[in-house]
């Protein structure tokens, strides 16, 4: 999967925290939310495995932007939020 800049994406609405010990770099407040790919930042070993010293597959990392109004009921129109997310948390929307 290669997500081009401008692609609309949705973050998985997944909560591994409820299933046991884990290390997740996808903040809770973007899960299930719709954003847009800004750029591909490269590929890095998956921190979810590195954190437990397990063999870590390389994952593409994207800069994804979300409107503040998509994230918060009191979000200000026009302001937005940029966050680094790994490919395995994203689906084209």
């Amino acid at each position: 999967m290669d997500l081009a800049p401008g692609t609309a994406v949705r973050v998985h609405d997944d909560w591994p925290e409820s299933r046991g010990p884990c290390h997740i770099r996808t903040p809770h407040y973007v899960r299930g939310r719709r954003g847009r790919i800004v750029r591909r930042l490269g590929a890095f070993p998956n921190p979810e495995d590195l954190a437990f010293a397990r063999p870590a597959a390389t994952r593409a990392l994207y800069h994804v932007v979300f409107n503040e109004t998509e994230l918060w009921p009191d979000g200000r129109a026009g302001d937005d939020l940029l966050v680094e997310l790994y490919e395995h948390w994203l689906d084209p929307a």
């Binding site: 770099r25 996808t26 903040p27 930042l41 490269g42 890095f44 921190p47 990392l61 932007v65 503040e68 200000r76 026009g78 302001d79 937005d80 939020l81 940029l82 966050v83 680094e84 997310l85 790994y86």
Partner: peptide, 27 residues
């Protein structure tokens, strides 16, 4: 973000948009 940076006395023009950058990963 606007309420937060006001603690430093920073007030941006109404026409300036804020982009918050949550530094979560490898950069």
């Amino acid at each position: 973000p606007r309420g937060l940076i006001a603690e430093w006395g920073t007030v941006l023009p109404e026409t300036t948009r804020i982009r918050v950058v949550d530094s979560t990963a490898d950069y």
